[in-house]
């Protein structure tokens, strides 16, 4: 399995809107905790440790 870095969302604006709506009214600490839970849920859905490793690399910014 390879990590998908090409567009794959059928409704990007809708997904982005839902994401921000989920954070509305949360404190900074609550938002951090929310994001942590979300990552763990999505990670479980992906399932593959290799793919998740590639995602960790893509999210890291070694250049800056």
């Amino acid at each position: 399995m390879t990590l998908t870095l090409d567009p794959n969302l059928s409704d990007p604006d809708g997904v982005y809107c839902d994401l921000l709506a989920a954070h509305e009214g949360l404190s900074e600490a609550e938002s951090h905790a929310f994001n942590a839970r979300l990552i763990l849920i999505l990670g479980n859905h992906i399932g593959d440790r290799e793919v998740l490793k590639q995602a960790l690399d893509a999210a890291a910014r070694p250049d800056r």
Binding site: P7, Y16, H23, S31, A59
Partner: peptide, 29 residues
Amino acid sequence: SAISHLFRNAVLDLAERHAFARPLVNSGR
């Protein structure tokens, strides 16, 4: 909010390198 600002800049940051984030960049539809 601070969190929406954080997500916005994360999208811009990823869009430089990865095609998937570009449809999320919204400077006017």
